[in-house]
Amino acid sequence: MHPAPSVIVFTTLSGAGFGLLFWLGLGVPDVRGLSAFAFFVIAYLLAAGGLMASTLHLGRPERALKAFTQWRTSWLSREAWLSVAALLAMAAYGAGLVFVDTRVPWLGWLGAALAAATVLATSMIYTQIAAVPRWHTALTPALFLALSAGGGALLAGQVTAALALLALAAVVQIAWWLRGDGALALSRTDMSSATGLPGRVRAFEPPHTGPNYLLREMVFRVGRKHALKLRGIALVLGYLAPVVLLLVPFAHWLAAVAVLAHLAGIAVSRWLFFAEAEHVVGLYYGMR
């Protein structure tokens, strides 16, 4: 799959942003006034900024509001509703903390639940696609949720929670990669089932001499040869570095480095999430 920068930025930033909103909604840390304001600004820049980036890959962004209509069947539509609901609930809750020094616990819990549900909906957009066997697993929502909670805890300054959740996310990430490498074979979709032809099937001649939308969007293969190195970089930057930096004595600049390393590592992991994903349509071209 083509790793569109807008979608990588969106899932990385908004995942961390909604993760931070989740912790703020739970009242962890229990902040008020200016300090609460700072936390909420960071959370909204990440969450809403990511959402804005996601509209950049639309062919017709001016019609984006129509995406709110099909919540009964479409995870993308559900994500739209849940993200707006989470941002509105947390705005009201945050206003209470910042301006009137009041915490409304039930509103915070509601906002936290909506933030978590938004991340779940984002992950389900990918998980539901059976044509991309690497994504079509319960490990995908597990990975997105663990990363969002871990990244959120890191941003919220919750050392113990961040250590536990990032370690958990790293385990899920490795499991997701290992399962993913065998996912296409596991799906039982191959050139024989794609064409229904008997015997050994070889793509003799493609239907067109140049590239097309399908090949550009679904059969992206550039960079797969560096996949193992990039996995290492993602693991070190996204998981290992923040954990090490959290374990050494606390300093603000170290926390900032931990957050930046984490976001960079997760962006690399998200790039691989797309670049390594094989869409079964590639089989019609004799590719994967």
Binding site: L76, Q128, A131, M218
Partner: peptide, 13 residues
């Protein structure tokens, strides 16, 4: 809106 999700969902291209 040209989000392309339906093209991703189609296994046949």
């Amino acid at each position: 809106i040209g989000c392309g999700l339906c093209a991703w969902a189609c296994p046949y291209g």
